[in-house]
Design a protein around this nucleic acid. Structure first.
Lengths: 240, 240
DNA sequence: CGCTACATTGAAGCTATTCAACGCCTGTGG
DNA sequence: CCACAGGCGTTGAATAGCTTCAATGTAGCG
């Protein structure tokens, strides 16, 4: 049975799509039917792939995390997404990788030959539809991020980011007020289209306002979730 | 035969994906097999759909153009894409529309029931894969725009926008130096995440520099395409 | 212990925004 | 035929927010 149920309740919650929902797709099950997949281990900061390279494999994150980004000619980069366990890297019909992928910490990946995906998709409509669902989730994530980056202030962006991570924790059954940040400040900056300095200052201001604690640079404690959601500008009350 | 060939040459040309390549997908052929589709005519500024609404149809633009956007609680909007003839509105597995769609000028749409799409996708792997291709193109467009908005200046954004439209003309066999802008300044602003005033000033500056002419507000003549590409910051020369 | 990488803080500068006014074009009615 | 109104576009001046550049702080690791 084709599920169609993903994203059934509209979230409109900033970056939620960008973190929380992707891994829930059924594609994981489908992929298990592929026999000829191999594993690959990556060191922190090691690249999975580089944009422009021929795409031989699609990868699925087993553990760790990968950031997917685009490099601009001037050296800037825009991180498009973070891929967590269960998420895919390299979906889409391009013959080349359109994004570079870099492991954030130690990471293990399952490597699936594109030819296998193509074959399975051609034979099995259900699997093909699951691919469609997975891409649909990626598209939603990209548009969530675009809306956030395009219309919100630095504070709102960072607050949205933290809330998205908190929701991700909830769904995983973890403490949603205790957020571990596996990525560097520069990764957050390149994701939210800010500078490292602005990210840092914004963290500090949230801390000064008592909304969060920051016992280590990689650990955020949310003290006042409601206030944080307010600050994220996600409150619908302004909508007529 | 499944094509997989879309986007085979990497473009990396700013917003190219956002305009040029989507309509070339094979889905158009596939959809012709759907019998129970109806037509709908829209006045300028009339809405195709509103975000959050239940999704009963997927639409295909026959003529005219539609802008797809997300409204933020504070009243701002982020235009995610412009859909031109051949493009689809409402693809994806959500049960609700995730974006609002508004006709830019007089527009004719083909309305395809989601149930029909779902059925056809379930039976016909090739059609399903074409859906996947179409979404893949949308995803690329969204990421192109994200990269542009996230990393480039107002001038670079507008120049990229014009180049994308020029390329679109080329592919349609039209004069690539004569660009008709069917949308308002406010649409361009909401697409590029700028204000109307900044868009206007940036047009003026490009005109003063002799790179473009602007005989009417809806007509752009590109005088110096090379210079415009330079300004867009797409020149790869800086890449090591 | 000191090195290196990352994070934070400060001060100055700049780009885009905001708010306000004006200009232009089209359509309408006197 | 001209006057006026309304929508859209352009321009100007002041401001705000983020960036830039530079310095300082901190934590892990040889």
């Amino acid at each position: 049975m084709l599920t169609m149920s993903l994203y059934s309740g509209e979230s409109h919650s900033g970056l939620e799509g960008a973190f929380a929902k992707k891994s829930d797709t059924d594609v994981r099950r489908g992929v298990e039917g592929i026999s000829n997949s191999t594993l690959r281990r990556l060191e922190p900061r090691e690249h999975v792939c580089r944009e422009g390279e021929a795409k031989h494999y699609v990868y699925q994150v087993e553990n760790g995390a990968v950031c997917l980004y685009r490099s601009m000619p001037d050296g800037h980069r825009q991180i498009m997404d973070f891929a967590y366990p269960g998420d895919f890297v390299g979906l889409g019909t391009s013959e080349r990788h359109l994004l570079s992928g870099q492991a954030i910490g130690p990471t293990r990946l399952r490597c699936i030959p594109v030819s296998a995906i193509r074959q399975l998709a051609g034979r099995n409509p259900e699997f093909c539809f699951q691919l469609y669902e997975a891409l649909s989730a990626e598209l939603t994530a990209a548009r969530d991020l675009l809306a956030t980056v395009g219309t919100r202030s630095a504070t709102e962006r960072l607050a949205s980011f933290l809330i998205a991570l908190a929701r991700r924790n909830e769904r995983g059954g973890f403490n949603s007020n205790r957020i571990v940040l596996p990525m560097l400040r520069s990764d957050i900056a390149d994701f939210l289209s800010l500078t490292v300095e602005t990210v840092s200052r914004t963290f500090t201001r949230l801390k000064q306002r008592g909304i969060i604690d920051l016992p280590q640079s990689t650990l955020v404690i949310i003290n006042d979730r409601d206030e944080l959601e307010q600050v994220a500008g996600l409150t619908q009350q302004a909508c007529a």
